[in-house]
Design a protein around this nucleic acid. Structure first.
Lengths: 269, 269
DNA sequence: GGGCGATACTTTACGCCATAAGGAGATGCT
DNA sequence: AGCATCTCCTTATGGCGTAAAGTATCGCCC
């Protein structure tokens, strides 16, 4: 199950994400709030971390806080908005990259930046995001289609741009690079997360799982090797442990991307 | 809502995907089947195309076929498996690329292939996949986490490998390139699909939607420009229509990837 | 041709889900 | 003290996937 975020009231969602002006409580009466948006978001994350996205229900979140499902609706407009908040909260775990950089002229590119090691910086960013996704695999089930535009998500973007700055790309190419990098990390994290999930859910090793799978496949499609010759040769070369092969794909895929970025740098000044 | 595929019985799912041996009907009695797996899959796709993923329910699919939801269970083990089948059916719309290539020595790289225009071939492949996703946007809501391993998905992969062959990459790098390309196309398609969906659902232009969104954002985070300086400069440079900017991101992102692939080619023979 | 076993399909029911509606109790201002 | 306000609850609605069990229909074999 994938979950579709960002479907709630965009207005309220944004307000919550960015910390609503918090009406200064003038003339408030009634019982003090026993919960808070923050607490609910935390509880939601706890549920999703522990039980997975499928188990995330308003009831479950409420229960974890000793309330009913309906109690949450005082604080949060609905499940969709809660998901947006959970998503951004998780992304807030990301480091914001190395140096904020005071404020060099943002115009053209005569920057005297340390340069060159932008590759390292981008790699660090990618590893950071990858690890974050794997800490909270359910986030990968929140459809990335709708941009939530939370502060943490934007901060992550900004961090990537900061890392890429020394590469000195023209704007259009920069956009392409950012898109490619983000999607790549997310996609690969999803693959890895699922491999782990399959192992955990079925109690079978990732390795065994694949073995069973491909045995069954060979049985069902005896002409496999003729139909997919290139696939077969590629498959054959990656004999190692499955999780290692993901890491290798991550490394090499990233290398491709970095090379591509390097190739598009503006002519050196 | 994202939907999580591949959670059903892997055995039966695979059998259905690959066209089960189709027990040769010896000694069958009972009423003739009025439905078929194919018809059910088609109905499911029709529902999802027309009403979106959220509206895809066993009841809805059954109704379209003039049956109840439970009638489907005679043919298909459950909703998860149906989704797998729908997914692969959609991917079967993809072209399989230019020339199947008879069978040149797959060992080393002294191939006399037309070479060079692998960029074009890969671009065509990417455009094809991108277009297919946009024809059936709901597919992007099927979690890519779990590899379904249907014939069409594998064929798409094979087609990409065929396109990439003249680039003559070492296997490890090839794996990285494939992963990066696939994730990129999928991710960008998701973004585009959603932009369209937002426009359709709310009746607001994509442009207006963004305008509202960023106005609200400026209101909630007046220090936006200081917090995200690089993001702001990047945003500012892309004034055009929103859908065009996706296409541009697609083009430039792909260019980055292709350059990266080119950079990693084995030394020319 | 009669009957029987297999098959297609239905009805019903269960336990979930998000959330609309409205009510009870607590709280603090006036 | 009175009352508006706010939190939280109970209840109800209409959905979902699918288990279980019933009914109708067909083809084979005696």
């Amino acid at each position: 199950m994938t979950v579709y975020a960002g479907q709630g009231d965009a207005h309220r969602s944004l307000a919550l994400l960015w910390g609503a002006p918090e009406e200064p409580r003038t003339g408030r009466s009634g019982p003090k709030p026993g919960l808070s948006v923050d607490a609910i978001v935390s509880a939601g994350i706890a549920v999703a971390d522990a039980e997975g996205m499928a188990a995330l229900s308003m009831r479950a979140v409420g229960e974890r806080l000793g309330r009913t499902a309906m109690a949450l609706y005082t604080y949060v407009p609905g499940k969709a908005e809660l998901l947006d908040l959970m998503h951004d909260r998780v992304l807030a775990e990301l480091g914001t990259g190395p140096a904020p950089v005071p404020a060099p002229v943002p115009t053209t590119a005569t920057a005297t930046a340390p340069a060159g090691d932008w590759r390292e910086a981008v790699t660090a960013w990618a590893e950071d995001l990858y690890a974050c996704y794997l800490r909270h695999p359910w986030v990968l089930q929140v459809s990335q289609a709708r941009p939530v535009l939370g502060p943490a998500e934007l901060a992550a973007m900004e961090a990537l741009l900061r890392a890429l700055r020394p590469a000195d790309l023209p704007p259009s190419r920069l956009r392409g690079a950012v898109a490619a990098l983000w999607q790549f990390v997310r996609g690969l994290a999803a693959t890895t997360a699922d491999a782990r999930g399959a192992a955990a859910a079925t109690g079978v090793t990732d390795e065994d799982w694949w073995a069973t799978r491909s045995a069954r496949l060979a049985e069902l499609a005896p002409d496999f090797a003729e139909r997919y010759p290139l696939l077969v040769t590629l498959q054959g070369t990656g004999g190692g442990a499955p999780e290692d092969s993901h890491r290798e794909a991550f490394r090499t895929g990233l290398a491709v991307l970095l090379d591509g970025i390097a190739a598009g740098r503006a002519p050196k000044a």
